[in-house]
Design a protein around this nucleic acid. Sequence first.
DNA 1: CGAGCTATTATTGTATACAAACCTGTTGAC
DNA 2: GTCAACAGGTTTGTATACAATAATAGCTCG
Lengths: 218, 218
Amino acid sequence: MEKRRADTIAEQLEELIFDGTYADGDRLDEVRLAEQFGVSRTPLREAFQRLALSGLLELIPRRGAFVRQPGPVELLEMFEVMAELEAVCGRLAALRISDAALAELRDANEHCQQAVAARDVDAYYSENERFHRIIYQQSGNSFLAQEAAKLHKRLQPYRRQQLRFRGRMGQSMSEHEQIVRALEAGDAEAATDALRNHVAVQGEKFHQLMATLKNAAE
Amino acid sequence: MEKRRADTIAEQLEELIFDGTYADGDRLDEVRLAEQFGVSRTPLREAFQRLALSGLLELIPRRGAFVRQPGPVELLEMFEVMAELEAVCGRLAALRISDAALAELRDANEHCQQAVAARDVDAYYSENERFHRIIYQQSGNSFLAQEAAKLHKRLQPYRRQQLRFRGRMGQSMSEHEQIVRALEAGDAEAATDALRNHVAVQGEKFHQLMATLKNAAE
DNA sequence: CGAGCTATTATTGTATACAAACCTGTTGAC
DNA sequence: GTCAACAGGTTTGTATACAATAATAGCTCG
């Protein structure tokens, strides 16, 4: 499936918003961005619409497009929903997961461990994403998997920051072990709790997230 | 907040897709619809994008916009997710709900009962929606409430059809009673189960939903 | 000197014009 | 006779031109 210009522009803009090039409340200038990307305003506006629907931009009629970074409250809310979605995926996956998927899960986990040993945050991050994505898919509900992946992606930058905190990778690993064991055993309740706990922002993770937000604001 | 043309067009198209004017797989002709709405292709294409993002259309590059009605499998998946979202809302609301909201909930329920007595499907439907929306909001998580409301709206037409089945309104009512009792008692687990059961498509409801789909196809 | 109004400017929303890709029907070759 | 290639028309994607609305600055009046 080929892409149109508007697609790639949307992706690039998304990147620019995620990495903090544009801060919350900034207005995106159509004409400036258009010549920057070397296109006309039309595909740019299409990209705006797409980003607005996914929540990254707010389109105020006759005023323009404003970047809309979630504040602390909204972010906690999103993490809470993410935790619940993962918990549901885990519960369903515990009943529906295939042996092949379990093997893949273990494989992803081993790669995670290697990344931890090598202190390679990037590698850990990508294998971690693979780990979770497998669980989404093994829920046996592709609509659920899609929604979970969508929110996962949206929280990506914040999650990534959190992995940089001391000891987090190690703790996360042992939580993964727990999750795999619950899924292997087909224990829906244990999988639910393990995944919810793994994702939920509570205790020390709360302060880490707040610290991340303060850094991002600078 | 005023609307632009594209907004009203998106709403009207949404309506036309929901009410079955356009069937699954139909291609929407830009020029024909443009002159039909009395606008140019530009705002129409904006509307297309919006509907594509919410899943009602599939935009195939260089091919056009095709309406994409969910099939039986996808529909069951969506209802499963809806059930889980409602269950989560219920669990959180059991802990966080205010007395005022409980009173509103009881009020909505009474109106529901009156509608059942009067065999007024439309009234029942609108009060039912109000009932659920209150629970979403009382989860104390506005992001969750928003997502739940979004999916609720998307499933609206199918839910509505189901209410027409014999005895469904009465059963639904007694389930509502159970939900309110659980929330009053602050019993998170009971609220979770009651709401999940209320929304889940299983048993007779499955056949009813399939029958609805067959009718819609004609 | 300040406040309010007006005119100008800038920016968004919409229409139209143009370009590129796709579908289809016909023609020609094997 | 069938398949493939090409031409014409159709349709989408993008650019540009135009219109309408909001921001701004300057001017006038109190």
